[in-house]
């Protein structure tokens, strides 16, 4: 990065450290923080959408839809995250390729499963074998986001389902007596009021989601945990910057980063809770009303 870093072996002290911390590998490490933030930014709304859909399905008057909603939450909530991550990503990946295979190579004679091997025709590989590495990485990341969204969507569905049921029945009946249709009651009364009940559960989920991001590493995405381990491990003279085992320092940095992220979220979420409790017929809303008197 800097011109004086051209010959790392001749450097010492501070300049060595500067060059070390700005090596291309460290820049990859810094970018991987962005990977985690992007994952959070994409996963949180999609999980919320999955959750909203799941909760609506679970409340639906149509029986099959209701069963679907309940099965989704029960099944995903009942399986350990890691098992689900490891299984689902492989299953999804092979499922996509299998379907593409059926469409693209209808004349393919050989069996797809040959013992332990999963072999679709080359045209059906997703992404195609000859596409650049970046597409493989993006595809892996997309699979990870989808899996995260499904897992956390199931938890969110349960929270939102509970929150929808917690809205006082009298509010909904009043709306009905004004002549609102079921859809109007849902949109105008139920949804705006449920957030105050959902927020404690959702903020909990958000914290768990932040702490679950290192699972990316399990899915083969090079996240901050991967780079911390890779950079921290002892380096011999084969590397430009040899050093002993420094994993402890790298993991301390991760610890601090995660603590900052969760602490920042706590502050923002508590502000949001205050705002949503305003004027609500809940304990928090009541306390605010009394304090204002």
């Amino acid at each position: 990065m800097f011109s004086f870093c051209a010959d790392p072996k001749s450097l010492e002290g501070f300049s060595w450290l500067v060059c070390y911390l700005t090596s291309a590998k460290h820049v990859d490490f810094y970018w991987s923080f962005l990977t985690v933030l992007v994952l959070l930014a994409v996963t949180a709304p999609s999980a919320l959408a999955f959750g909203f859909g799941g909760a609506m399905a679970a409340r639906s008057p149509i029986a099959p839809l209701r069963w679907f909603g309940k099965t989704y939450t029960a099944m995903v909530r009942g399986v350990p995250d890691i098992v689900f991550f490891l299984f689902f990503v492989i299953a999804l990946d092979q499922g996509i390729e299998w379907m593409k295979h059926q469409v693209v190579c209808p004349d393919w004679k050989e069996p797809i499963r040959q013992g332990l091997e999963f072999r679709v025709c080359p045209e059906a590989k997703v992404p195609s074998g000859s596409s650049a590495q970046i597409w493989h990485q993006l595809y892996g990341f997309a699979l990870a986001v989808f899996t995260f969204a499904i897992v956390f969507g199931a938890f969110a569905a349960n929270v939102l389902y509970g929150a929808m049921n917690a809205v006082p029945r009298a509010q909904l009946e009043t709306a009905e007596s004004y002549g609102m249709s079921q859809g109007q009651v849902f949109r105008r009364i139920l949804v705006p009021q449920m957030w105050t009940y959902a927020l404690p559960g959702l903020s909990n989920l958000w914290m768990i989601l932040i702490k679950a991001t290192p699972l990316l590493f399990l899915l083969g995405v090079k996240d901050i945990v991967y780079w911390a381990r890779e950079l921290g491990s002892a380096k011999t003279q084969a590397y430009a910057y040899p050093h002993p085992d420094w994993r402890l320092w790298y993991f301390i940095v991760l610890l601090i980063v995660y603590l900052c992220m969760t602490r920042g979220s706590e502050i923002i979420l508590s502000r949001l809770t205050r705002r949503l409790s305003h004027g609500q017929a809940t304990a928090a809303g009541e306390a605010m009303r009394r304090a204002a008197q």
């Binding site: 080359p122 045209e123 997703v126 992404p127 195609s128 074998g129 000859s130 596409s131 650049a132 597409w135």
Partner: peptide, 14 residues
């Protein structure tokens, strides 16, 4: 296009 574009090109060995 990018995902499927490479098909016609020479096979890349990973």
């Amino acid at each position: 296009l990018a995902l499927s574009g490479g098909i016609a090109a020479a096979q890349t060995v990973r």
